[in-house]
Write a protein that binds this DNA or RNA. Structure first.
Length: 483
DNA sequence: AATCACGTTGCTCCT
DNA sequence: CAGGAGCAACGTGAT
């Protein structure tokens, strides 16, 4: 029999999985997941919790096909070779990743496997375009608009691969580790409690989420995606990160839906362009891997970031005294997810108001987001801090009060996540420090005690940021505002 | 070849 | 109150 090992990575699904689809046709399959601690950029924190749940879900699906998922820890190469011997498999099959480190890793792994006499078959990662052929006149695109102008008209993915009709187990089975023993499901302390209530990771739920979104929310996506008071966005990002669904599947379904409902054109285009940003982020990391650790615009590499542990802690724990920031950061900690608008506001606050490095922010998001994704996180943090692509102007500094009032006018998100100020009327809910004393008293609020006073004055912090950024980004002739 | 318009998501101040 | 200038200046692709 022609047995294959299918090595699962960030592709925890049965549908639209080229490695699985093709190998299932050629013979029995041993599905394997390996936790290799020597690899860089592995999931941690909230996204590891998601990964844990997602793997359980995949394991259930595969068990029902008759060929259970096998878990192992250790060196990828050694595990694969060992399992191949035990199961009498001749071939290792996988889908590639887009992370910059993976290309070299896969290449040397492939060489090593071939040298032991095994066959290797790899399939492209979940991308909408070929990064090598997407080129402008002077090399890779650095502006989203140009990138998208080129890619958008070419978007027409063919129907995704179906799940394999049948998966046969290998003739000789192997011994699997027991996933719950890996300790990825937190208990003491159990910081994932609210995540368990909020999310159901897994391929089935990914498609239910997509369908609900397309049926109920796509038609008002452009208007509602930025709202903080209700969920007008797709919530697909964690499923995408684990590979429970592919961007190709989402694009295909969205295009079909837009065709069905011509009136949803603008909303559909907006949504597609968000997937475009996901694609662009991957594209950028492939061509400019240095931006994982360095500003895309080198002129900012000497920016005088502040080392301010107290302010950083206040930001992380939702105690800055700015309700929209605090609600955002508490939501992030509780359910591992905040919408795009919240990410921008809180990222702007950290980098422009507190003048703390985007890398600190990116590190925190990496630990706390269930959808944490190296490319999206890196590119977006740099964009907000004004050091990334698209000549995003550094003077675009978000005002946390105005943003709150605009996108959560009735303070619904504020009252949900900051109950200690829920008694404030809407007029003051985003600026408690300006509320008249009697009102504060009636609402049971003592600023600085029951809820923090603002840790910085936004308009002052803004002036300081403009001066510091201007000194590097501009002509260097800005007047000094700081004594 | 040189020039030009334009660029995901803002804010403040001035008239 | 609305509306507009200003905040800087570079890659991209069209002319």
């Amino acid at each position: 029999m022609n047995t294959s090992i299918v090595w699962f990575r960030k592709d925890l699904r049965l549908k639209d999985n080229p490695a699985l689809f093709h190998s299932a046709r050629s013979g029995p399959i041993l599905p394997v997941y390996i936790w290799d601690e020597t690899l860089p950029e592995q999931e941690e924190g909230a996204s590891r919790w998601w990964l844990h749940e997602s793997l359980l879900s995949l394991a259930r699906s595969l068990s029902s096909t008759g060929s259970p998922l096998v878990f192992a820890r250790g060196s990828t190469k050694e595990v694969l070779v060992h399992f191949a011997k035990r199961s009498n498999a001749q071939k290792i099959v996988w889908n590639e990743l887009t992370e910059p480190w993976a290309k070299t890793f896969d290449l040397s792994l492939k060489k090593e496997l071939l040298s032991t006499g095994l066959k290797v078959e790899t399939y492209p990662p979940d991308l909408l375009s070929d990064p090598e052929s997407m080129m402008g006149k002077n090399g890779p695109y650095r502006v989203f608009g140009q990138f998208w102008k080129r890619l958008r008209p070419a978007l027409d993915p063919s129907a995704p691969f179906p799940a394999p009709e049948r998966i046969f187990p290998p003739e000789f089975s192997v011994i699997s580790e027991y996933l719950p023993e890996w300790g990825w499901n937190p208990s003491r302390p159990d910081w994932a409690k609210e995540m368990r209530e909020k999310w159901i990771p897994g391929e089935e739920q990914a498609h239910m989420t997509l369908n609900t979104f397309l049926d109920e929310r796509l038609q008002s996506y452009e208007k509602n995606r930025d709202r903080l008071d209700h969920e007008g966005y797709s919530m697909l990002s964690p499923f995408l990160h684990a590979g429970e669904i592919t961007s190709r599947q989402i694009v295909r379904a969205t295009l079909d839906k837009m065709h069905e409902h011509p009136g949803w054109q603008n909303d559909g285009e907006k949504f597609l362009s968000e997937l475009g940003w996901r694609e662009f982020s991957r594209y950028l990391l492939i061509h400019f891997p240095k931006m994982i650790s360095e500003p895309f615009q080198p002129k900012f590499s000497s920016f005088p970031w502040k080392d301010n542990p107290e302010a950083l802690l206040a930001w992380k724990s939702g105690k800055t005294g700015y309700p929209v920031i605090d609600a955002t950061m508490r939501q992030l900690w509780a359910i591992g997810y905040i919408p795009n608008r919240s990410r921008m506001i809180s990222a702007s606050f950290l980098t422009k108001d507190l003048l703390i490095s985007w890398k600190e922010g990116a590190r925190w998001f990496r630990e706390t987001l269930v959808d944490h994704d190296l490319a999206n996180n890196t590119v977006s943090w740099q964009w907000v801090s004004g050091m990334g692509v698209d000549a995003a102007p550094y003077f675009r500094i978000y005002n946390p009060v105005l943003q709150g009032e605009r996108y959560d006018p009735e303070g619904i998100a504020i009252r949900k996540w900051i109950p200690e100020i829920k008694g404030l009327p809407n007029q003051w809910i985003h600026r408690p420090w300006e509320a008249p004393e009697p009102l504060l008293k009636r609402a049971g609020i003592i600023l600085g005690k029951t809820y923090p006073a603002p840790i910085v004055d936004h308009s002052y912090a803004r002036q300081e940021a403009l001066a510091l950024f201007g000194a590097l980004g501009g002509k260097g002739q800005k007047p000094e505002l700081m004594a």
